[in-house]
Design a protein around this nucleic acid. Structure first.
Lengths: 220, 220
DNA sequence: TAATATTTTTAGATTTGTCTAAATTTTATT
DNA sequence: AATAAAATTTAGACAAATCTAAAAATATTA
């Protein structure tokens, strides 16, 4: 089954939302996609006739297995292109999203398989997000946000959930990047902020908001 | 000025045709694009309002300077992507055209400039076609089809004008690729066929049809 | 040059994806 | 439970890109 660019964008957004809420509702999808609820309803009918959506009027909706596979195909393409843009073309990681949004809709199995091989079959994109394989299998990593890491433990940064330019700016300031090793020194109950030691740098304090968005895992 | 994918495809085809005939007419563009004459007329009106086309009803049409620059932008993107697909992803050169047809419509100046640098600013694509620079300047090469090379001269293959799978098959058979050195041994007046010597291979005879489609230049 | 053929354009329809405004259904609140 | 509010869907419109069929303009030829 093949999909239009617009269909793929809806599929991707539904997948994203249903990861968090199970069932998705019309308004939240409209908000996510910056479109109108009426447009969402129109597309839902189309996706239902394509048999990739469980959808009953007024009841909410979610992708079925075929729909999830379709979503993972798009996610795979998106993340492989992001990896390419950062690793090969030397883009900053916060500049690649919108270009990858276009590239992800190029439909050629062989292109993506060759790109995957050319890049060395990476498991995670430049933001630390897992890259599904061609069967839709997602690599797992035992990661936790910094707030949930106990004091005195040392961990390696594996992903960042807020990928805004503002967040990137903060992380640069703290010398935090993917792969950076961090030791948790102290937790402040008052505001949830953390004192941390970034390897090769002096100790510093990060807010709870930052700590909740930076994910890390224990040494492999 | 930016263009839709459809507009870009028309612009590219008009450019291609007007290189050969100067003025382009509706039916030949419809044939080239495998669409209907009525659709062409519709698009011509649009391109005229965008001020990139000289067009008078029933009189034929051609791109003006702005239109040519737009066409060269698309050609540049197409050929850079083809180069990427062959050199980096190891596609066969006859498999890349349709994928490059999609990639060429991704619009990001920075993407293309970075891709160009990543590829080492190539001057010619895998078919030997020149890659315009970002200003629309086309590298020139003193090339001639094999039929026009005098007997006893040795030349280097620089491009192939017919890029069909069938042609590729023939060239593989003759051990001819871009960069191959060929000596013209004899011309047969009867049917225009040529006896040639491909470097490191024994002499063979190619038809006039092949000779007219293989371009070559004298040693740099 | 008058009749015929070809080319090109117009008129009107279709599909996809979107929108606004109104109607309907569901949910929340008094 | 009745009413108000919120969420969702429907109805109808629009723009882009295409198409078919018919009309208009141009070119060919007898």
């Amino acid at each position: 089954m093949s999909f239009t660019t617009s269909e793929e964008n809806y599929i991707k957004s539904i997948y994203h939302l249903q990861q968090e809420t199970g069932l998705v509702n019309t308004n939240s999808l409209a908000a996510e996609m910056r479109t109108r609820a009426a447009s969402v309803t129109d597309m839902l009918k189309k996706l239902k006739t394509k048999k990739i959506l469980q959808y009953e009027k007024y009841k909410g909706f979610k992708l079925n297995e075929a729909g999830k596979k379709a979503a993972l195909d798009v996610v795979r393409k998106h993340r492989l292109w992001e990896f390419f843009l950062v690793e090969k073309l030397k883009f900053d990681w916060d500049k690649v999203h919108s270009i990858a949004e276009d590239l992800e809709h190029i439909s050629s199995e062989e292109l993506i398989q060759r790109l995957d091989n050319f890049l060395g079959n990476p498991s995670f994109d430049p933001h630390g997000d897992p890259i599904p394989d061609r069967h839709g299998k997602i690599p797992v990593i035992n990661q936790q946000c910094l707030s949930n890491i106990p004091v005195k433990k040392t961990v390696t940064v594996s992903s960042v959930s807020n990928q805004s330019a503002q967040m990137l700016e903060m992380l640069k300031h703290y010398n935090i990047a993917l792969g950076t090793q961090i030791t948790i020194l102290k937790k402040f109950e008052f505001d949830g902020s953390l004192e941390i030691k970034v390897l090769k740098h002096s100790a510093c304090i990060i807010s709870e908001q930052v700590a909740k968005n930076v994910f890390a895992h224990y040494a492999q």
